[in-house]
C-alpha cells in the first residue's frame, strides 16, 4: 500500500456522497444503500489507517472490518424487514412521504 492518501480521499468522497444521499433520498431502500456505502468508507479508513505491519496489512484491523461486514449485512437485513413491514402497514416506502416538494 504505497498511496494511502488516495484511499483516504476516496473514503472521504464515499462518506460525503453517502451522507448527502441519506439526507436527500426519501425512498428507504436508497437510504439504506447510502448507509451501506458510508459504512464501506469507514471500513476503508480503518484498514488504510492501520497500515502495514511486517510487510502485510494489520491483521487486527482486517479482523475488525471482517466483523463489521458481517454485522452490516445483519443490520441491513433487519432494516429491510422493517421497511417491508412499514410498507405493508402504512402503504408508504418513506419516513416522510409528504415532504414539501411542491415548492
Amino acid at each position: 500500500m504505497n498511496h494511502p492518501e488516495i484511499w483516504m480521499l476516496a473514503a472521504a468522497g464515499l462518506f460525503g456522497l453517502g451522507l448527502y444521499s441519506l439526507i436527500i433520498a426519501r425512498h428507504l431502500l436508497r437510504q439504506l444503500i447510502a448507509i451501506k456505502i458510508m459504512g464501506s468508507a469507514v471500513f476503508l479508513v480503518l484498514v488504510v489507517t492501520a497500515g502495514l505491519v511486517d510487510g502485510s496489512l494489520d491483521g487486527i484491523a482486517q479482523a475488525l472490518v471482517l466483523t463489521g461486514i458481517v454485522i452490516a449485512v445483519a443490520a441491513i437485513a433487519f432494516a429491510l424487514a422493517l421497511v417491508v413491514s412499514l410498507a405493508e402497514t402504512t402503504g408508504s416506502i418513506s419516513l416522510n412521504p409528504d415532504d414539501d416538494d411542491g415548492r
Binding site: R26, H27, D99
Partner: peptide
C-alpha cells in the same frame, strides 16, 4: 405490495 413510491430526491432538503 404496491406501496406509494416517494419521488427521489427530495428537492426541499438538497
Amino acid at each position: 405490495i404496491n406501496a406509494v413510491e416517494p419521488r427521489d430526491p427530495s428537492p426541499a432538503r438538497s
